[in-house]
Amino acid sequence: MKPDLTVNFAGVCFKNPVTVASGTFGFGKEYSSFYDLSELGGICVKGLTEKGRDGNPPPRIAETPMGILNSVGFQNPGVDLFMETELPFLKRFDTRIIANISGNTVEEYRRMAEKLSDAVDILEVNISCPNIKSGGIAFGTSPESAAAVTHAVKQVSKIPVMVKLTPNVTDIASIAKACEDAGADALSLINTILGMKINIETGRPVLRNNTGGLSGPAVFPIAVRMVWQVCSAVKIPVMGMGGITTGEDAIEMFFAGASLISVGTANFGDPKAPLKIKKGIDDYLIRKNKPSLDCIRGRLETY
């Protein structure tokens, strides 16, 4: 029997639980030359800001053991140009579009949410980017400011609001709870972990931004732990991400409580990684004789 991979996520039906993570997939065009994007459950588009941004000076990427650091810094065309020039292409595919938005002020988040809420399926409110000086992570590190952004976006949004959390905090569950209490429909985690790499020949950081966000398999156990902590603290659904590279990784995330998963850095190693992960999930459910993801989601038996 073919397992049922569909997921109802905050009222939005996903045909499978595999999405691609914001910032690793552009606006889909590049990867569409490798496979049909309709194979994906959803696409989290490159992080958007109200006005376009140039991003940080290079180098913006460094490889680390089983991972990478990046400091792209929100290079994007801005929300208006995205809707005009990028969104029509994405709409051609039978997949859910998740718009990732970042602001410097609560008002900016609200204005972006107003513009996008008729155009996409879910808003991913990014309060966790470590690569820009103001905004982003500044909102994600305290329960009060996380709640304030969530509340503002919820007031204007006609579509589900998913808040993307940072792992660069002491107690992620308290921030998750604050977002839930402020009306968030879902959560996504983890964003990257702030890191640094030094060139010992020059005595300077490899990244021009000095620090960057760590992602890839190196962060996966941290992501699983945080998804588990958050899912234990809230009732709203969670999109789990952070170093997922195989179907087995995805299954771990489901056990930890995630309803959807997102593939990021693994796209760089293998453009078809999301499809292989989807097949790995399918194979696991067949092998374990489980008819659907409901049979494993959150079914972790802890000690």
Partner: peptide
């Protein structure tokens, strides 16, 4: 430049370029 995806999606391998007096970061890979 240090490169990620290699196909133009991740915007890490940037090179500053100018055209018509406007500067922007172009993608070395794409």
């Amino acid at each position: 430049e240090r490169m990620g995806c290699g196909i133009g999606a991740c915007l890490t391998c940037s090179c500053k370029t100018k055209s018509a007096g406007k500067e922007k970061y172009s993608r070395v890979c794409a």
